[in-house]
Simulated assay, not measured.
Amino acid sequence: MLRGSCLCGRVAYEAEATVETIAHCHCETCRKAHGAAFSSIAAVPRDRVRWVRGEDLLRAYESSPGKVRRFCSVCGSQLIAERDGGPNVMLRLGCLDSPVTVDRQWHIWRSDGASWYDPSVAHPELAEGFPPA
């Protein structure tokens, strides 16, 4: 069982599914929508997802023809994206509360990638915050 929620906690979902593949999408739309270098997503069957609270707080934005992003109207967290009539929804993994371990991951739409981020370059990793000056 996968569980996810928004930043303020007012909207939450459960998905009776597993994450088999993660895509880190670098398209311009995802970068702008998330204010980040990329958005990490995973497809799960639409009929396996249910809202456990806050469904009335969800708002939708059609970011490209037929693609709708659903987000919390209070805190703005994007929780899922979906295409009209598609069998799957895309979970926005930044809002996933359940731990997942997935070997199969892809960086997609690198042709649109931010000029300041290259996933092939290793950078220092810090457990928390910046080091003391």
Rank of each mutant, 00 (worst) to 15 (best):
M1A: 12
R3C: 03
G4T: 03
C6G: 03
L7R: 08
R10L: 09
R10F: 05
A12N: 02
A12S: 13
Y13S: 06
Y13D: 04
E14T: 05
E14W: 07
A15L: 08
E16D: 14
A17I: 03
T18F: 06
V19C: 04
V19R: 06
E20M: 03
T21I: 11
T21S: 00
I22M: 06
I22F: 02
A23F: 03
A23G: 04
A23K: 02
A23D: 05
C25F: 02
R31H: 04
A33R: 06
A33V: 06
H34R: 01
G35P: 07
S40M: 11
A42K: 01
V44Q: 01
P45H: 01
P45G: 01
R46Y: 01
R46K: 06
D47N: 05
R50M: 04
R50P: 08
W51H: 02
V52E: 04
V52A: 04
E55N: 03
L57N: 11
L57A: 13
Y61V: 09
S63N: 14
S64Q: 13
S64Y: 12
G66C: 14
V68K: 12
R69Q: 15
F71G: 11
S77H: 05
I80E: 09
A81K: 04
E82I: 05
D84R: 12
D84I: 10
G85M: 12
P87K: 14
M90T: 11
L91D: 04
R92D: 05
R92E: 10
G94E: 11
D97W: 01
S98V: 03
S98G: 10
V100S: 08
V100T: 09
T101L: 13
T101M: 11
T101P: 01
D103H: 07
D103F: 03
R104N: 14
R104S: 10
Q105W: 00
H107P: 12
W109H: 15
W109V: 02
R110P: 00
R110Y: 01
R110G: 02
S111Q: 10
S111C: 08
D112T: 03
G113V: 04
A114N: 01
S115G: 11
S120V: 03
V121E: 12
V121D: 05
H123L: 15
P124L: 10
E125A: 15
L126E: 10
E128Q: 14
P132E: 04
P132T: 03
